[in-house]
Amino acid sequence: MRGAKAVDNLSKESRRFLDDLRLYLFSSGKNEAEIGEIAEELEVHFAEAEKNGKPIEQIVGESPKEYMEMISKEMKVDTKAWLKYIPLIIFGAISFSVIAQLVDDLRLNFSYVFLGGTVVISIIFILLVFGVFKYTASRQVSKTKELLMIMIPSFLNIALFGALIFWDMFYTLPGIQLGVTASIITGGIVLLFLIGFSFWAKTAILPVILAALHIPELLLRLTSLEVSARLIIGMIITYIVIGLYLYYTFKKLKKEETASA
């Protein structure tokens, strides 16, 4: 979570509540600027209350969930932002298959079922993830439980996408077929979008995963290895690169956390 100018000596409990509040309000579709505003105001309050030895319960009451709901009720849903996020996520999902197809064959070929299915699955995924976030944030569950719960929509997402890809592969479905030029132009637009998105969201996760998926395979094609060996080595490198990236990001996050604690 992005914090504004942080109070150095805030207790872990208070910091946790503020992070959870931000997540809860964000998952409830509230405006980011307004979320920052109330979180900052509460941060000032927590800091002074702690200086005077007051426990957090004296501020938020017995039920953090009820308190978060009380604040949420006073804020309007930011429909404009949602209209921005949903196409972004759908486009992100489609961009993965665009890149995969281009790497494979330089020609794009999408069935309507695949495109429509991607939209539907993405929306289900977003709603489920935000539902889980709201649940874990308002009940302040442990990080482990949070991670486990987030895996439910993630696995469901993978399963649904898998089913969609199989459906698309084994049946000839009507759709769009682009020539080489149109495919390359589309690929260029998608790449620009991915770069823009990475800067906007301040994370390199999408390009890193895409690169980890495709670059090893492209390089291995240049070798004289057998197909099966190439696939296995490619997959191992992919996992290692993604794993290293996540490890690096996690460590960086931890460092920031201890620096601000």
Binding site: I38, E41, L42, H45, A49, K54, E57, Q58, I59, V60, G61, Y67, M70, I71, K73, E74, M75
Partner: peptide
């Protein structure tokens, strides 16, 4: 609970 005032202030400001 002290935090109660903030939702009230938010509404009063709106």
């Amino acid at each position: 609970s002290e935090g109660t005032i903030y939702p009230l202030l938010m509404r009063m400001q709106r």
